[in-house]
């Protein structure tokens, strides 16, 4: 595309983003403010993730973009097309072939490697947001690792529902120090973040925050000893590939109430079907 710098953003902005990313990597789970740029996409379309991807993308990279686990949703397709046009990079739907994966709502089922970076689109980076609306106060709570209030929230869940009933954006402790919002991925995906081999970067465009989890970092879901964290999924088998362990979406198949469960990770499901005997 003419008239644009490589990957849309100008070099100065990318350098600013990279400096922010370095700080973020240096303090795992700690939110770093950055001067977010206006992007040619509305907030909620992953402008934070796009800026992070633009800052780390090189000519030799292969990009995969997923939304709710799928490569073919409007959001995923537009972001992939955006970078194919502005950076001319190769794109793929194969998790194993990608060097950078930008995601909303899922972590791929395929185990990521040291050669990969996963970029999360984050709507609300502050895990204490629901408990404490003041930014000044949440910053102070992070600085002092004053996280009693978050445990109170979990206590309330068990008192009311008999269990911790948080299914998305389930809060985690990173490196034993910072409380972090994993973005609205299902709690099922939380264990994948723990000591992940790939670098994990998080971009919140509207809130202008970047944070990161370097490879092999401890990421622990908050819980109680007698109510341990559980990575729950629908107790079904994928109707397409037969997987019993993957995260499933329930889809309506007709207008007479017909439903089935299929893998949320479309690439994972397709690969299994291809390699099936």
């Amino acid at each position: 595309m003419k008239g644009y710098n490589f990957a849309y953003l100008d070099e100065q902005t990318k350098r600013m983003l990279r400096r922010t990313l370095l700080k973020a990597v240096a303090i795992p789970g700690h939110q770093i403010p950055f001067g977010a740029r206006e992007m040619p996409l509305p907030y909620g379309w992953g402008t934070g993730g796009i800026q992070v991807t633009a800052a780390v993308l090189g000519r030799a990279d292969t990009l995969k973009v997923i939304d709710q686990g799928a490569d073919d949703t409007t959001n995923a397709v537009s972001i992939r097309r955006f970078f194919a046009r502005t950076a001319g990079v190769a794109t793929t739907t194969r998790t194993a072939s990608a060097t950078i994966i930008q995601t909303r709502h899922r972590i791929p089922e395929t185990t990521l490697t040291e050669a990969q970076i996963i970029v999360y689109q984050v709507p609300q980076p502050e895990p204490l947001y629901q408990l404490e609306p003041s930014r000044t106060e949440t910053r102070r709570m992070h600085a002092l690792a004053d996280y009693g209030a978050m445990h109170v929230r979990l206590y309330e869940q068990v008192a009311r529902y008999g269990q911790i009933a948080i299914s998305y954006d389930y809060p985690v402790m990173v490196n034993g120090r910072h409380l972090m919002a994993p973005s609205p991925i299902p709690a099922f995906d939380n264990p994948k973040m723990h000591r992940m081999r790939a670098l994990q970067l998080f971009g919140a465009g509207r809130e202008k925050r970047i944070y990161a989890v370097p490879p092999y970092t401890a990421v622990v879901s908050l819980d109680f000893e007698d109510h341990p964290f559980r990575a729950s999924r629908a107790a079904h088998v994928c109707a397409l590939c037969g997987d019993r362990a993957s995260y499933l979406d329930e889809v309506v198949t007709d207008d007479r109430g017909g439903r089935m469960f299929i893998c949320s990770d479309t690439d994972h499901c397709a690969s299994r079907r291809e390699s099936a005997p």
Binding site: D146, G148, H151, Y155, V158, A159, F224, E225, D226, H227
Partner: peptide
């Protein structure tokens, strides 16, 4: 809840057994 209010200081001090 009243229980959560009373339990907060215990949790802040590291109690993790509901």
């Amino acid at each position: 809840s009243a229980g959560g209010n009373v339990g907060e200081r215990l949790m802040a001090a590291g109690a993790r057994h509901y």
